[in-house]
């Protein structure tokens, strides 16, 4: 095992609660390579631990991540394929499974589109202008991250349920929000609300307003300025936000579970179907659906890593 010490330099920053992966290139600091007089009694690097301690720390980290993170992922695929590939494909071809996949795609399309549009609008207002209470507004946008998914569903039950504020009116006019697609979409929009705005605000703040001001002073309209100047500058960040928003939208369980009503073939999204099939001991079917969601998660992570590299390349080096 080669465990030479090395130092990572990176401009990676935390992006809100969607923590950024380390996409840095491992490069020894130039400072280390310069010929530096070493203390006679300490031939070993000043900034690292003795070999055995290094080994124990690495072993602990790798073991912990393997047991708690890798194994659960492996179990999903092992269970999904435990009765062979035809059983796996058969489970996915069930009408109930197909209905859940369709519903999940529909809900994700609705909520991602709306949050994309409003995320960009919010990021424009927040990052391109100075106003009082900006930090507070960002905190409000972040709220859904700190609300339990169950509560995110509950608030819509309290608004639109039979005993809710608008329940009687909705019933009288035969409008279905709860236990139907609108309710599921609303709950999903709630939980995915911050992603796009959160990905864009720091990026757009960093880019400032000079380019836009130049475009405006040259006679471009506001929309032209946005589409020709701002959008090209933020495209990777936007994609990053949409990617995370979509992953959460497709995978959301708690909030959707509360508002869905679990009507088979009608209001079950993929995560809800995973639960139902699991509770019915249909493990192959349950894990088959779960494996699709796990693949979505893995693809999301790979694309996210690529996007973060793009974002870091596009960022102006900040002097270190």
């Amino acid at each position: 095992m080669s465990m030479q010490p090395g130092y990572v330099t990176s401009t990676t920053r935390m992006r809100g609660y969607a923590p950024a992966a380390d996409v840095s290139v491992a490069a020894p600091s130039p400072r280390r390579q310069s010929a530096r007089p070493l203390p006679i009694a300490a031939p070993r690097d000043l900034r690292t631990e003795p070999g055995p301690i290094r080994f124990i720390i690495i072993a602990l980290a790798v073991t912990f991540l393997s047991i708690f993170v890798v194994l659960p992922l492996v179990v999903v695929f092992a269970q999904a394929f435990s009765k062979g590939i035809s059983a796996y494909l058969g489970a996915l071809a069930e009408p109930e499974a197909l209905a859940a996949i369709r519903l999940t795609l529909l809900v994700a399309a609705i909520s991602v589109t709306l949050n994309l549009v409003f995320g960009v609008i919010a990021a424009w207002a927040i990052s391109k202008f100075d106003f009082a209470g900006k930090t507070f507004l960002i905190t409000l946008i972040d709220l859904p991250f700190s609300v339990s998914p169950v509560i995110s569903g509950l608030v819509f039950v309290l608004l639109f349920g039979a005993q809710g504020f608008f329940g009687p009116w909705l019933q009288a006019h035969n409008v279905h929000i709860l236990f139907a697609v609108p309710g599921i979409a609303l709950a999903t929009i709630f939980v995915t609300f911050p992603f796009v705005a959160r990905a864009l605000i720091p990026l757009m703040q960093e880019q400032g307003t000079l380019e836009e001001e130049a475009a405006i002073s040259l006679g471009a309209s506001g929309l032209q300025t946005f589409f020709r100047v701002t959008l090209p500058n933020i495209k990777w960040g936007l994609l990053y936000g949409v990617l995370l928003c979509n992953a959460r939208a497709m995978g959301e369980f708690g909030a959707v579970s509360v508002v869905s009503g679990h009507i088979r073939g009608e209001t079950n999204t993929m995560p809800l179907l995973v639960e139902i099939l699991y509770n019915e001991y249909q493990f192959v079917s349950s894990f088959a659906i779960a494996s699709l969601l796990a693949m979505l998660a893995l693809i999301t992570l790979v694309v996210k890593t690529i996007l973060e590299r793009r974002l870091d390349e596009g960022r102006v080096p900040d002097g270190d």
Partner: peptide, 13 residues
Amino acid sequence: IPFALPTAVAGVA
């Protein structure tokens, strides 16, 4: 991964 994996999937796994 715990961040990206849907919670229901993590739960059954």
